[in-house]
Design a protein around this nucleic acid. Structure first.
Lengths: 176, 176
DNA sequence: CGTTCTCTATGATCTCTATCATGTCGCATT
DNA sequence: AATGCGACATGATAGAGATCATAGAGAACG
């Protein structure tokens, strides 16, 4: 059963699932890590509370995404996991997950691949966010991703860290 | 020899090295991938040229870092690798590297760990860069990393995407 | 001991973008 | 048809930070 796996997600095949109500907490910062989670449906946010009372939303995992991949190795979680919407998550003892990765090179390689693409995409995003002007950010984003589907512009604005009005103004500027 | 490896970096042990002169190019976008590189010394930048003539610097790899980790799986490179300073790089056929990862679960797991930490750190960086005010960015950075060593503030300014004057002004504001 | 470098620091100006306000359009729901 | 919602669009204003300029403090070096 283990030997035929080719993708790390298959490790969760047959794993039990749990439902998390909107706003509920799956784990908290500094809880000991014993379990790996895979989001099946809904969305779960990783939040890092700051001293000033606000919180950084480090990630929002949705269907098919693993949660807190660094926790494969950490002894405790470094942020809170809060359901943004009602969510279903598959869970597995961490030792089981780790054993599967060791036993199945294909699964391990696929996880490496997933991470590598993530790293690459994030690096690009970081560099775009470091640009000062809206026009530069949009230019870079379009160059990397191509034109978005209609109805997606507002998501682009979010991705490149720009207010929707600023983006639409820049788009208008480009048309003339 | 393969069986005693515990870290992916060990795969490059005994690999031949090459010297890259400052400004020289190790590979270019769309070159076919056949080789994996590990930077031994100096620094190599991954640059993605844009249509408007500028270039995004996606990453600057220095001693001990792998270059273009996504290339383990890609058929062609997606950016240029240019030496920022004279650099020494170890190189290995990609097939050899991949074979070693398959043969040695510890090496594969260590690569997963390296990537996972990178992903985590980058996510935090992205969220900091999405904050609008210097004070918020600094606050978040300090909360995650703690106070930097003296002489490092200017590097913080770079990391959080803020000009040095703006950072020093914010620091002055906090002292009063 | 002077030179040169980098980091730290602060002032003045000017550009850019967030924000607020307002309005249109298309689409789904009722 | 009426209602509501989300994306698209643009004007006016105020505020924040980039940029340019300038300068002191400390380390490295011959």
């Amino acid at each position: 059963m283990i030997s035929i796996m080719s993708h790390w997600r298959d490790i969760f095949e047959g794993a039990p699932t749990r439902t998390v109500a909107q706003g509920a907490c799956l784990f908290r910062r500094e809880d000991p890590v014993r379990t790996m989670y895979l989001v099946r449906s809904g969305s779960i946010a990783l939040e890092r509370p700051l001293r000033d009372g606000t919180a950084l939303t480090l990630h929002v995992a949705t269907g098919g995404m693993a949660l807190a991949e660094a926790s494969v190795f950490a002894t405790t979680y470094h942020c809170d996991a809060v359901a943004r919407s009602e969510a279903e998550v598959a869970f597995l003892p961490r030792a089981t997950f780790r054993r599967a990765l060791r036993a199945c090179p294909d699964a391990a390689l696929s996880l490496i691949e997933t991470h590598a693409h993530e790293v690459q995409a994030q690096r690009a995003r970081i560099e775009i966010l470091r640009l000062r002007r809206v026009s530069d950010r949009l230019e870079a984003w379009l160059d990397l991703h191509g034109a978005p589907a209609p109805g997606e512009w507002i998501r682009v604005a979010d991705q490149i860290g720009v207010s929707p009005p600023a983006l639409y103004r820049e788009l208008a500027r480009r048309r003339s």
